[in-house]
Design a protein around this nucleic acid. Structure first.
Lengths: 157, 157
DNA sequence: AAAATATAGTCAACTTGATTGACTATATTT
DNA sequence: AAATATAGTCAATCAAGTTGACTATATTTT
């Protein structure tokens, strides 16, 4: 991609590239910290599980995938030591998925990396512009969803 | 997702939601126009092919996928009537993938929809803020890539 | 000019992350 | 008490990509 192509990109392409670049840097750095078995979707799942865990169905709705897909993901993350299943306190059918100690380590690492990345952007465009950027993105999301908050995270491709 | 969760999102999550919401609206609307068999990745591929077509390898590099994957995509899009293969003028091994008339219809429709979407955002945040938004996203991409232009489009997930 | 190597594209087999459908056990509503 | 709904699992399948092997043509080296 050359400079003039890059400069003439529409907003949606820019959002794609921004998201790509950000999530890519995050996961390269998580990998360097020994969390190479974590995918972006897992990060969003952990977000849904903090601080008190979540049921499979809750996670499925949050991510916009089926409960069966969540079930597989949970099995994988349990084997890799990031999450545990607990009995639901009131519903014998249900299970609560919670983070293990290792799971919390990823969450903390992720937060630190994201903070660093935002900090770096502040050094580049300033705190005020970053604030405006975030506000404008919120407005874009809110309006594109016709005044409703987004219900799920999964990007389609 | 409730309002306070939404308001405290980090930049990367906001970028994910913005990209998701935008690309989703685009493809819902393309679908309404009879282009329901087009996926986001096809749109980015068409971008690479305008105005003079592109070889399989060029498309593969642009999208960040293998040439075999491109080959399959081209077969699919050829069957659906969006692209054609042409002999390469100088290299007998090569083929140029070009848009058909139907392919151009999608490109035009896409441009119109994206323009409308940007227009709607301008009504909401103003032209100046949209301009700043795009500039800041470009800086984010440029800097996250350590001063290099992005070489490929594909979001990982 | 001939030989060696590289490149564009295709075919086939496989992997991965999701899907749909059928099922069990428990909850909730009628 | 019976009927229906819900949480989660198991199995089969699908879709979009991958890797590896191959053919035909180009390019580089000798």
């Amino acid at each position: 991609m050359n400079h003039s192509v890059f400069n003439e990109l529409d907003l949606t392409s820019l959002l794609s590239l921004s998201f790509s670049a950000s999530i890519n840097e995050l996961h390269v750095r998580l990998s360097e910290l020994g969390f190479g078995d974590i995918r972006p979707v897992h990060g969003f799942m952990f977000k849904c599980m903090t601080p008190n865990g979540a049921t499979g169905i809750e996670i499925a709705e949050y991510l916009g995938i089926t409960k069966q897909a969540v079930s597989k993901m949970v099995d994988y993350l349990e084997k890799s030591g990031y999450v545990m299943k607990q009995a639901h306190p009131t519903d014998k059918r249900g299970k609560i998925i919670v983070l293990t100690e290792r799971g919390w380590l990823v969450v903390k690492a992720k937060e630190e990396i994201l903070t660093e990345m935002e900090q770096r952007l502040i050094e580049n465009i300033g705190a005020e512009r970053l604030h405006m950027l975030k506000e404008d993105l919120k407005k874009l999301v809110y309006e594109t969803n016709e005044g409703k908050l987004p219900s799920m995270f999964k990007p389609i491709w």
